Amino acid sequence: MALKNSASSYGYIAVGLHWLVAAGVLGLFGLGIWMVDLTYYDSWYKTAPDLHRSIGVIVVTLMVLRLVWRLANPPPRPLASHSFWERRIAHLAHALLYALVISMFFSGYFITTAKGQALYVFEVFSLPAIITDVEGLEDVAGVIHEWVAYTIIAIVCLHVAGALKHHFVDRDSTLRRMLGMTPKKV
């Protein structure tokens, strides 16, 4: 496998960014589900949200890098086994995932900074609050954050189902390419 994508396979960078973002998104979802039920007296009450925010900044940074890499280094051409509608659905799902992960960052950012406090990233640096005068911003951002999180997970489930369909039903190289494996010859 090469560093860059080729006409028939993904390169190390595309594969690595894909799986790092996937792991981050799933991890953040699990952490988010778990931490909303913590009580004030739980030892993770402050630590879990700090960790969630910091990892969220890393994930959105990786997602932006992934988008830039995709624009500068186009993905391999679709396999001949992919129908027109499968290609269209895949493009729509990818576009939605990019947009939704980036919108998750902004909704999380506004939850954190709505009252004027900065968003600290692993206590190494902070992102300052830029919009603080909007009444109810934290609540609206919280609702958006929750809905977008579940929407992302729904699209991820469809994405995984599609990859598994290609692998086990169509028996093509779709999944193998994103795992960094050599596409099988047909």
Rank of each mutant, 00 (worst) to 15 (best):
W69A: 04
R77D: 13
G30V: 04
V59W: 06
P78E: 00
D42R: 06
V68Y: 04
Y41T: 10
R66T: 08
P75V: 10
R70N: 06
S54E: 06
F29D: 05
I58R: 04
G56C: 08
T39A: 11
G56K: 02
I33C: 02
L65N: 07
Y40P: 00
D37Q: 12
L28H: 05
L79M: 11
A80L: 12
M63T: 15
L51F: 10
L71K: 12
R70S: 12
R77W: 02
S54L: 07
I55P: 02
Y41H: 11
G32W: 05
A72S: 15
P49Y: 05
L28F: 07
L65C: 11
G32P: 07
D37W: 06
P75K: 10
D37E: 14
I58W: 11
I58D: 06
I33V: 15
Y45T: 07
W44L: 14
H52N: 04
M63G: 10
V36M: 09
L31V: 06
S54D: 03
Y40C: 00
I58E: 06
W44E: 14
H82I: 08
R70D: 06
M63W: 08
K46D: 13
G56P: 05
R70I: 03
R77Q: 15
R53T: 10
H82N: 10
S54Y: 03
M63P: 01
L65T: 06
K46N: 14
W34G: 09
P75F: 02
L71Y: 12
H52D: 03
Y41F: 13
I58T: 13
L71D: 11
Y41A: 10
T47L: 14
G30Y: 04
V59R: 04
D37R: 08
G56E: 02
S54H: 00
L38P: 00
R70Q: 09
V36P: 00
T39L: 09
T39K: 15
T61I: 03
D50Q: 14
P49D: 09
V60N: 05
A72V: 14
N73K: 04
P74E: 09
A72Q: 15
L51I: 15
G32Y: 06
F29M: 11
T39N: 12
Y45D: 05
S81E: 14
H82V: 08
G32A: 09
W44Q: 13
W44M: 15
V57A: 11
T39P: 00
D50V: 08
D37K: 12
P78K: 06
P78S: 05
I33P: 00
R53I: 09
L79H: 09
L79E: 13
P78W: 08
R53G: 11
L62P: 01
S43Y: 13
M35L: 08
